[in-house]
């Protein structure tokens, strides 16, 4: 068993209205960045865990996303190894 640091990114699904992204988009434009075309807000979740291998760690994180961390109706997710704890 080794210790792995994972970064899980949960993102609003394409096409789904993202009210937070829309509000931030408006703020950025009014602050002088009219070139901003779109803003979407997701979240990053950092998980430290013990696993037998990289593959095992990623598989476990994927299972966590399916069970709890992401809502398949509104969100997509990506799991990746992170270098160290943030």
């Amino acid at each position: 068993m080794s210790r792995y640091h994972l970064e899980i990114r949960v993102k609003p699904r394409p096409g789904l209205l993202d009210p937070q992204g829309k509000a931030i988009h408006g703020a950025l434009r009014s602050l002088g960045w009219p070139e901003v075309d779109e803003v979407r807000v997701g979240k990053a979740i950092y998980v430290d865990l013990d696993a037998a291998s990289e593959r095992d760690a990623l598989d476990k994180a994927t299972a966590m996303c399916r069970k709890l961390l992401a809502n398949p109706v509104t969100e997509d997710f990506e799991v990746a190894l992170a270098g160290a704890r943030p």
């Binding site: 789904l16 209205l17 009210p19 937070q20 509000a23 809502n71 109706v73």
Partner: peptide, 11 residues
């Protein structure tokens, strides 16, 4: 129940 309840449009 199907679907999801997300942040109010006007935040």
């Amino acid at each position: 129940l199907p679907g999801a309840l997300i942040r109010n449009e006007q935040l």
